[in-house]
Design a protein around this nucleic acid. Structure first.
Lengths: 249, 249
DNA sequence: GTACGAGGTTGATATGGATCAATTTGGACG
DNA sequence: CGTCCAAATTGATCCATATCAACCTCGTAC
């Protein structure tokens, strides 16, 4: 079943983790240079999806986690009634599918927001490997824990914060994720539509639109379509913290 | 550093996982009978907390995960401004602290809602053990994934559902968790105050109170204080699904 | 170039639940 | 058994955001 290792390693189509520019963000982050090829042996690299295509589908058998290599991914849950709830956005270097590691099927649907390439980690092989590599296991725990925290953070945003606070928080989150990749933290292009933002943040599209223009009028951002420029990061941070400040009497 | 194993195993104060009534819910669930003592070797059992006492505190060093043995626990995040956000309720057999496995400190504060006993799993030893026991590792992934899903579910509830739907969902969640423990799924005592429910569900206390009385008037439940009886489980399920139904045109 | 449709913006109105305020209940304790 | 304080309930009002409706913008296809 397993392909001969030399073939995979030498295949020009299979770019290696060694050469990947995201190796300081992705799973290789937790792996010694020497052990990197053990990770390379299980990863299936280079799958490419066009905008709108599904990487995986809720209720199909869970097989793999996916690392975003380029592009971006939206995950969402479809309820019985056909309503969509966006649960997350994933950018290069981030791992998708961690919420599916219980149960037989994927817990959500993952859709490419633009032309996107991913690396696939078959879950059985990944579990086998983490069993042998304590640092990689540790890193998996770390990532999953992080995702729990992110989700709690989102729940908090949804239950306690105003529309402005939610949107400021999202912009700043994206900003810092661009920064991690050594891209401009103040000048970027939103990978998702207003609709997705609204759904993710529990708002109506109209509200998202209004807040964008309000921020623009206040000189906090400049936005045309999906192109965004953060003009006053500090002010945005103040917006997100305003809520908790008020709580402090 | 490690105590002599025979002493621990024979100590009358250290009840064993073998004898624990929750062994089919808790971590032992994933462990072969034969291997159970390896788990027993690392667990520190029997710590007891009174109502209101902290099991651990946000921003103190993260050392252990805790399994609830009896009683119940509330976890919450305290924001800079002192605002509390309840992130979860934990019942016997459930594992607390999974959200803290990234970072040096606990990600939230865990507080006993009543007199509560817990089993402590020092994280370093637990990680070491899961590295040696594939099924236990698999179970950890399963639990963490489950918690991500729960949190997404909560986010969904918060962003899309009405007060009635949220409260019906919480009641049903508690119901099924009592049922897993072979307790009555229709007749139980809420471990948490209305305040905690409100905070958890992103509502005002007054709203929670109103919904409880409304449900009562509709004959869905009977509630006096923390004592709750679910009179019409099906109707409650309908309430939680009503939203998604509407979405289906 | 023009037509088309999806995505985005703007305006007017409605509403669920927050907030403020008052009262009641219940449990802990002397 | 009464006192006291926190928790819970009930009522009245207000507001942020949803909803409904109209319009605009831009990319794509012909």
């Amino acid at each position: 079943m397993a392909q001969a290792i030399p073939i995979r390693k030498n295949s020009p189509l299979k770019a290696s983790c060694h050469e990947c520019s995201l190796s300081n963000l992705c799973l290789p982050l937790a792996v010694e240079e020497n052990d990197l090829e053990r990770l390379e042996d299980i990863v299936q690299q280079g799958r490419i999806f066009n905008r709108g295509e599904h990487i995986f589908d809720q209720s199909t058998p869970f097989r793999s986690c996916f690392a975003v290599k380029s592009g971006s991914i939206k995950t969402s849950i479809i309820t019985e009634g056909g309503e969509e709830q966006v649960t997350g956005f994933f950018m290069p270097g981030e791992l998708v599918g961690l919420d599916s590691m219980s149960g037989e099927t994927y817990a959500c649907t993952a859709k490419a927001l633009e032309r996107t390439s991913v690396c696939e980690f078959p879950i059985e092989k990944l579990e086998e490997l983490t069993g042998k590599m304590p640092e990689l296991q540790h890193h998996m725990y770390h990532l999953m824990s992080q995702e729990i925290q992110n989700s709690h953070q989102l729940a908090m945003l949804l239950s306690k914060n105003t529309a402005e606070e939610r949107i400021a928080a999202l912009l700043l989150s994206l900003s810092s994720r661009f920064q991690r990749r050594r891209l401009s933290p103040t000048n970027f292009s939103l990978p998702m539509a207003r609709n997705d933002i609204a759904n993710f943040l529990g708002l109506a599209v109209e509200t998202v639109s209004r807040v964008f223009t309000r921020f623009q009028n206040q000189g906090l951002i400049r936005a045309r379509g999906r192109e965004v420029e953060l003009l006053d990061v500090e002010a945005l941070q103040t917006v997100t913290r305003e809520f908790s400040r008020q709580g402090c009497q």
